[in-house]
Design a protein around this nucleic acid. Structure first.
Lengths: 177, 177
DNA sequence: GCCGCAATTGTCAGAGTCTGACAGGAATGG
DNA sequence: CCATTCCTGTCAGACTCTGACAATTGCGGC
């Protein structure tokens, strides 16, 4: 991560990273199928966490609130190094290839959440509408994290997440320009 | 596109594609910086179209309606071959690398639209909220297109787009599970 | 302490994507 | 008809990623 942050993700070869930690390039690819995965970290595991967290929410709670609560549980992970997290997000946001890989991770999350949401909202076109809602919520999560990483005022990520989520519930009444 | 559809995107080499159309692999990469760009088609140009279309909307219209109208103008492109479009979407959805590249295109669109939306909605945290709204709208667009591509009942893409957009304006009142 | 077993790692070779440099041919304009 | 410019092909190279095989390490039983 040091190398990526200093020289830029694309300007660092796998061989450099491997040499830095004293392994061969081949071993690097055994741990990380792709170079990008070294900074994205474990797509599946956290997706499961979000899914379970959302599934545990009360059935009569609006889905939008439940989704936000599920994401908040990720933000609140205690063993989280603030500076390290921000740097990872910064590296992630600086390279197209990384952003793309990150978005793919979210597609995976979406596949986990959509059926749950579809069940809750019901009605016609339930899956299509559920996909829209899940996708939107993931977008809010992404945006809040990005805002948090580039923020210098020490804002609380939960507050940013709430602002993003509220922006969409307010869609209906913004008749004003 | 024929080759990609039959054999799968990853199982077709650039050299095969180049040979098929009678050029060298080097020339292929002059037209398409990356292999994925051969199926994604012109990220920038259409993004500009959406931006202009949205900018031309009346200032007192709700942004959500304006965004939907902007995307509709893409769907309504007259010279659009239905079958070809669906096949492209199918190929696109079948390969992770392509999905990722497609999402990146949408990030580019988001950068074009966000400042316009931020201007219209105003208030505190305008850019953060604008990002959430634009991201959500792009998600709806994506989902509607994917649903259209896999749909066998001949549904109108505009209707699917509307359903997706409406799913988010209805967020507030879904108190029901 | 020694041996067999399994897991981890390194080395080697290869396919595939993408880029830069250079040269030849085709089209365009005077 | 020539000169300039554009397009293309060839060549060479860097890089990511994968498969096959050998070497190493760690561990439990004897």
């Amino acid at each position: 991560m040091d190398l990526f942050d200093e020289q830029g993700f694309e300007n660092v070869t796998v061989e450099q990273v491997a040499a830095e930690v004293g392994i061969s390039a081949r071993s690097f690819h055994r741990y990380f199928p792709a170079k990008e995965d070294a900074v994205i970290v474990e797509p599946v595991g956290w997706g499961e966490v979000v899914r379970e967290r959302f599934a545990a929410r009360p059935a009569d709670e609006p889905v939008w609130d439940g989704l936000r609560a599920a994401y908040e549980s990720l933000l609140a992970t205690p063993g989280r190094d603030e500076a390290r997290g921000k740097r990872a997000m910064r590296v992630l946001g600086s390279t197209p290839a990384l952003r793309a890989r990150n978005l793919e991770k979210h597609l995976l999350w979406a596949r986990l959440l959509t059926p749950l949401v579809a069940d809750r909202i019901g009605g016609s076109d339930a899956t299509l509408r559920a996909e829209a809602i899940v996708q939107a919520s993931l977008g809010c999560f992404d945006i809040a994290l990005a805002a948090w990483a580039t923020d210098t005022t020490g804002a609380d990520p939960k507050v940013l997440l709430r602002v993003a989520f509220d922006a969409l519930t307010a869609l209906r009444e913004d008749r004003l320009p």
